[in-house]
């Protein structure tokens, strides 16, 4: 029997980083912690490698790089290489056996949720951080589309930037281990992020929640001014800043689109106090579990009742100005030295 290459999220945790990529492993880890994550499955790097081998795409890619090895350091050539390799990969169908397995998994996900042609997100999940080269496809419906988007995500491992990055780091350019996450799209009422530390000051006594109507992309990209709630971890005191929100991201017929927010919702808080409290509670639990400040993404489903409507799509250690701590310590050290003079 061929190697297992599709995993349900509850089969995964952070030990699977290499195999399914960080994003999938993280969704698995959150599932294990009892957090509600969108139902779905992961395609491991084995799946990618098997596809490349069985479909013949791998050989063609190797050949292309070999043939162009003298020119590949030129930026112009890298642009051309990206286009060519993505074309090669996306032109290949999934080998029969793999296609069947993928369809089966998608079908059981649809069953699980109870929806025919369930809209899913197909996201890349790299095992090493590589900036900006991984694509995400939202609102993907039907087995054929899912199949197509999975190969497109694989192809996205060969963007110009990814090629340049791998050359620069002297990594094998023909090989790019990449996992894929296929998960239910949430019919988002609103979405956003929660950080268990104030990123600007490093203040760990507060939780900050940022939210906008629609999907989370608008908040994560920083293009709009979201609602902001700063909550004291101990006493629960909340400082809310409700912004006038004009634009949100929502589903289009294919993928997503930017939409105007209806006037009556613009200045309304997009989280109610119960939802806010629940998000903060879970964020604090996760922080306590990892013993590290967390940066988490959540979505609230408009079709489900509270608290089942809160979904988590990301949890990772927060980046914040830890430098602040170091600088303070450095200053403290310098101050102590003035007593030595």
């Amino acid at each position: 029997m061929a190697k297992k290459w599709i995993y349900w999220f509850d089969e995964l945790d952070s030990d699977f980083n290499e195999l399914v990529g960080k994003k999938c492993a993280n969704l698995g880890e959150m599932t294990k912690l009892g957090m509600r994550v969108p139902p779905g499955f992961a395609i491991s790097v084995d799946g990618y490698e098997r596809f490349m081998e069985d479909s013949g795409a791998g050989e063609e890619v190797q050949r292309y790089f070999h043939d162009n090895r003298h020119e590949i350091n030129r930026v112009g050539k890298q642009v051309e290489a990206s286009r060519e390799i993505r074309r090669i990969i996306e032109s290949k169908n999934l080998p029969q056996e793999m296609a069947q397995e993928l369809r089966q998994s998608y079908a059981s996900l649809c069953d699980q949720v109870g929806l025919h042609d369930l809209p899913v997100a197909v996201r890349s999940s790299g095992s090493v951080s590589m900036p900006g080269q991984m694509e995400t496809y939202l609102n993907v419906r039907g087995e054929n589309e899912v199949e197509r988007k999975v190969t497109q995500v694989w192809g996205s491992a060969f963007t110009t930037r990814a090629i340049a990055f791998r050359l620069e780091k002297s990594m094998d350019i023909a090989k790019t281990p990449i996992g894929v996450a296929v998960l239910k799209m949430i019919n988002a009422k609103c979405a956003g992020v929660v950080l268990t530390v104030l990123p600007t000051t490093g203040d760990m006594t507060k939780v900050v929640v940022e939210a906008n109507w629609g999907l989370g992309e608008s908040v994560v990209s920083g293009e709009i001014t979201p609602d902001q709630f700063i909550v004291d971890k101990t006493c629960g005191e909340c400082e809310a800043t409700i912004s006038s929100k004009t634009k949100m991201v929502c589903y289009g017929p294919v993928g997503t689109r930017v939409a105007e927010i209806p006037h009556d919702l613009r200045c309304a808080a997009c989280l109610n106090p119960d939802e806010l409290a629940e998000i903060v509670r879970i964020a604090k639990d996760v922080e306590a579990h990892f013993n590290l400040p967390q940066d988490m993404e959540w979505v609230i489903d408009q079709d489900l009742p509270f608290p089942e409507n809160i979904y988590w799509v990301q949890a990772r250690p927060a980046k914040f100005t830890k430098k602040k701590q170091d600088e303070s310590q450095y200053l403290a050290d310098l101050m102590s030295q003035i007593f030595r003079m």
């Binding site: 602040k324 303070s328 310590q329 200053l331 403290a332 050290d333 101050m335 102590s336 007593f339 030595r340």
Partner: peptide, 18 residues
Amino acid sequence: EKQRREVEFRKAILPLIQ
């Protein structure tokens, strides 16, 4: 004693810096 107090000082002054 100076050295011992200096070690403590570095911790004690931090809240005022931050």
